[in-house]
Simulated scan of single mutants.
Amino acid sequence: MNIALIAHDEKKEEMVNLALAYQLILENHNLYSTGTTGLRIMENTSLQVQRFLSGPLGGDQQIGAMIAQNNMDVVIFLRDPLCAQPHEPDIQALLRLCDVHRIPVATNLATAEILLKALEQGNIAWREAIK
């Protein structure tokens, strides 16, 4: 499965901690990320991440293109609902794409953990359900 990992500035540390906690699950999948988030994950784990541009430079749009082309299976976008900065990725565009293309998306730690645990148990067969 292809998994996108994106985080607003204030949530990057939380994303690193999530990647550390679920490293054994994530290492079995293809990981994609915006530039800085992916770098932080790789610096703190043994995970390999395909990094796109940083969010402000269009990395979120590159991930959005993968979603639109049916090349993304799960999106984890840890967003800061209270203090998102103007330069940070636009969550609304990615949420819209995920909804249009029926891609599971987590915007907080609790939902991210549920998705990752479902992946671990092999309980995400949504692609077969929509064929």
Rank of each mutant, 00 (worst) to 15 (best):
L53R: 14
L53H: 14
Q48S: 14
S46K: 15
I63K: 11
Q69S: 13
Q61S: 13
V75S: 08
D60F: 05
E43Y: 03
M42T: 12
M66G: 07
G59W: 03
D60M: 03
R51N: 11
D60L: 03
Q50L: 02
A65P: 00
L47R: 06
A68C: 09
Q48Y: 08
L53M: 14
N44I: 01
T45D: 09
L57R: 14
M66E: 12
G59R: 02
L47V: 01
V49N: 08
M66R: 14
L47W: 05
I67Q: 05
F77G: 10
L47F: 01
I63T: 10
L78T: 10
P81S: 05
Q50N: 15
A68P: 09
F52N: 09
V74L: 15
F77D: 11
V75M: 07
S46W: 05
V49D: 09
Q61Y: 08
D80G: 07
L82V: 07
S46D: 11
F52C: 06
M42R: 00
L82E: 12
S54M: 03
M72Q: 12
Q50C: 06
N44Q: 07
D73Q: 09
P56G: 04
T45R: 04
I63V: 10
L57V: 07
G64P: 13
A68R: 11
M42K: 04
S46I: 05
P81L: 04
M72V: 07
G58S: 04
G64L: 01
L82N: 13
I76N: 10
V75Q: 07
F52E: 09
V49Q: 06
Q62H: 08
Q61P: 12
E43A: 04
F77C: 07
P56D: 07
E43V: 02
Q50M: 03
T45Y: 02
Q50D: 15
R79A: 12
M42V: 01
L53V: 06
Q69I: 04
R79P: 01
T45I: 02
D60C: 00
N71P: 10
S54F: 00
Q50K: 13
D60I: 00
L57A: 14
L53F: 10
Q69T: 13
N44C: 02
Q62T: 06
S54Q: 08
I76E: 12
M42L: 03
